[in-house]
Every structure is written in structure tokens, then in C-alpha cells.
């Protein structure tokens, strides 16, 4: 296994210039504030002022996951908050959080959280109590899925050993 390490590049150990990191953070901030928008690497690289070729690698090295997966976690985070805190129909939430179809949203949501959007909504409403003193965005961030592996991989694992539970809400 040790011989494989250089290829997969354990991201956290390598030094990165704080000034570069600050610019990468700017791209992450832009995803945070508009996760419903499309964020191709070209657009993110422009925000950070780095080359398109290197952006994804540098982002992953800095934040521990590739930019497209980070975007996915933010979309799921937002969708869970809307499902829990609003009465918006699931279809509206799917489109408002950046998906092009209800089917893709439902499938991805289930792959990531282990529950369908509807089942999550029902369970979360029963559980939320006394959290209104925590500023909303920090509370929401705590519910962000911890996607350390690709969704396709998670889906594969889920097929092998179900049920995979509801990691999204457990930390609260």
C-alpha cells in the first residue's frame, strides 16, 4: 500500500501557500453563496485566478474533496434545510437547489443521505426542537453530508450493505 501513496497524494500533508489558499477559499465562498448555479472548473479557476488545469487538484489538496463533490454537499445541505424548514414541494426544492430533474435529485439525495427527500422531511420535522438559538447557516452546515467518497462509490457500498442509515442528521 505504501507504494501507492504518491499516486493518490494524501492531500492534507502537503504545504500550500496561504495566499493561494486564500484565493481558493474565494472560489469555495462563491459556491457556498450560489450552490444552485453551475460551477464548471473554468468559472471557479477564474475566481481563484489559477489555471484551469491545476484548479481541481489544488482545491482538493486544500479542502479534502474535489470541487464538484463539494458543490454536491452544499446542494444536499441546502435541500435538507429546505425540506426541514419549509413547506415547499420537493419538486420546487430540487430545481431551487440546482438539479435539472426531480429524478436525479431524488436518486442523489437518497444515495448521499440514505433516505428519500420525503422520508427525510417527515423524520426531521419530528426531531427539530430548540435549535432556534443557533444562527441558521451554522446549524445548516452541521447537517452537511460528509462525502469523503464519490457518490457512485457510496451507491455501490449501499447496495452491498443496506440500510446505510442517516448520517446527515446524526451529529446534532
Amino acid at each position: 500500500m505504501a507504494t501507492e501513496r504518491s499516486a493518490s497524494a494524501t492531500p492534507t500533508t502537503k504545504r500550500q501557500d496561504p495566499l493561494l489558499l486564500r484565493r481558493l477559499l474565494r472560489a469555495k465562498d462563491r459556491i457556498d453563496v450560489a450552490s444552485h448555479e453551475d460551477w464548471p472548473v473554468r468559472r471557479l479557476a477564474a475566481v481563484s485566478g489559477v489555471s484551469e488545469t491545476h484548479f481541481a487538484h489544488m482545491f482538493r489538496q486544500a479542502f479534502g474533496l474535489p470541487p464538484h463533490r463539494y458543490l454536491l454537499t452544499r446542494r444536499i445541505e441546502r435541500a435538507t434545510a429546505l425540506l426541514r424548514d419549509t413547506d415547499h414541494p420537493v419538486t420546487d426544492i430540487a430545481f431551487d437547489t440546482g438539479w435539472n430533474s426531480l429524478g436525479t435529485f431524488g436518486r442523489t439525495f437518497r444515495d448521499v443521505t440514505g433516505e428519500s427527500p420525503g422520508a427525510f422531511r417527515e423524520r426531521a420535522r419530528g426531531a427539530a426542537q430548540g435549535l432556534d438559538r443557533v444562527p441558521a447557516c451554522f446549524l445548516s452546515a452541521a447537517c452537511r453530508p460528509d462525502l469523503i467518497i464519490a457518490v457512485s462509490e457510496k451507491r455501490r457500498q449501499g447496495r452491498n450493505d443496506k440500510p446505510c442509515g442517516s448520517q446527515a442528521m446524526e451529529p446534532l
Binding site: 465562498d29 453563496v33 441558521a136
Partner: peptide, 27 residues
Amino acid sequence: VEFTQEPIARYGNVDANFRDPSGNGWK
């Protein structure tokens, strides 16, 4: 000042986010 989120009204409050030059985030 570099704002990372414009003012948003929610749950009876209005909030916005900015960062200092080093990267510390304020709400």
C-alpha cells in the same frame, strides 16, 4: 470589504457574511 454573502432576511433576522484579508469569516 469582501462580502461572501449579501444580506438575507430569514427567521426574523437579517444577516450577511464577510471575510478579513487573512480568511477569518464574520457574520
